[in-house]
Design a binder for these strands. Structure first.
Lengths: 210, 210
DNA sequence: ACGTTAAAGAAACTGGAGTTCCGTTATGGA
DNA sequence: TCCATAACGGAACTCCAGTTTCTTTAACGT
């Protein structure tokens, strides 16, 4: 990326170059979902994508580099949030979306794999952080609306509340063998809402409850 | 492990065998903390441990196998919890312990690495789940005491409350670049306490708040 | 439409992770 | 204390992930 001259794929990004990137990223997602990050092999990705392995090595160089680009791609296709009119309804919708994504065989494995990749390389970690930054920012407005309606204390940090919804679901995915079911999503949303109402995420920290 | 005859290290586990295991696990921890799971190399671990690489390959075979054994070892040395007399005090002590561990340069990297390893292999995942099972069970009694004191609703699941304390800290460690500071630990404890008081973790789920 | 050259791709090469072989050490039972 | 053998360790070997080299294809400015 910061190499001498320009990175491959930047001068003539149209046509074949774009097709190759799409095919390789799709293949990388498949490979990650099937075998996890440890078994990710660039030659195998090239084979799946129907592309020369030289091309993959030249454009992405390492497995972490490929995952970083995959995350950039994933951040671009962010799905719009739904609106229910109440804080708890919105948070439950968000929790349900996360829970369904993570408990889906393919997507759950894929998310585990990209998180694993991010722990091994700073640049990939940055891409992961940006991805979640986008996802969180997409849902934060529903918390701000709740503050404006008077459902939550002034100064509540919307991003913190949305993160509080996802956190227990990701924690369960990674550290326990428990299945992520609908009740788990409900608890995640209700816990975040209860904490937000108690003022835990308001700017004057620690003033919440005694 | 389920191979023909017996696994190496089980028939004569004393003396040299035990020393080799200790040296290798220490070296593995160092290597994981420094380079992450992706760069873990059994030959390098052997070199660090001052042990023949043949030995490491024979006894642990794969990087995930080595991490699994490391997790088993980590589960055995569980540190006792502190008691403060109040639920929030106990939860804050727990949150503080987790936060200090994860924000420590070496331990933070180590935990990220073992989580990454667990995403790549079922046996390692099992070992990780057992490790967190032990850690959570160590702290669960303080929640039960709060229930007995009447601080929390009957039927509150102690394990869920303790997990709720750790979840946002691990989520931050893995998905955001944010530094885990003392206020973050405080928020984690207060959020879990607020949710528990609201009945989110009580057996009759969803009855919590309207 | 045409020419320049960026980017893809085929094939041969290389280094090191992981394996095999066999000799050496020292554990644990008698 | 002594012996059988479990476990360790050095060294040579294998195989494939990753690299290098060179040729072919097609993107984009004119």
């Amino acid at each position: 990326m910061d190499s001498e001259s320009v990175a491959p794929g930047t001068v003539r990004p149209g046509g074949r170059t774009a097709q190759v990137r799409a095919a390789v990223l799709r293949a990388a997602g498949d490979a990650l979902a099937e075998g996890g990050f440890a078994h990710l092999d660039l030659a195998d990705v090239a084979r799946r994508a129907g592309v020369g392995k030289t091309t993959v090595y030249r454009r992405w160089a390492t497995t972490t580099g490929l995952v970083a680009d995959l995350l950039t791609h994933m951040a671009e296709e962010s799905l719009p949030r739904t609106e229910t009119g109440s804080l708890l309804g919105d948070l439950k919708a968000n929790a349900r979306l996360v829970q369904r994504t993570l408990s889906d065989e393919r997507h759950g494995a894929l998310f585990k794999a990209v998180i694993a990749a991010a722990t091994c390389d700073p640049r990939t970690a940055e891409a992961l952080h940006r991805f979640y930054g986008v996802r969180i920012a997409e849902w934060a407005p529903c918390v701000q609306q709740a503050v404006d309606r008077g459902e939550l204390p002034e100064g509540t940090d919307p991003h913190e509340v949305i993160r509080a919804v996802s956190a227990p679901l990701y924690y369960a995915l990674l550290t326990s063998g428990a299945t992520l079911d609908k009740p788990a999503a409900g608890r995640a949303a209700e816990a975040a809402a209860a904490a937000a109402r108690a003022g835990v995420f308001a700017s004057q920290a620690g003033t919440g409850v005694g």
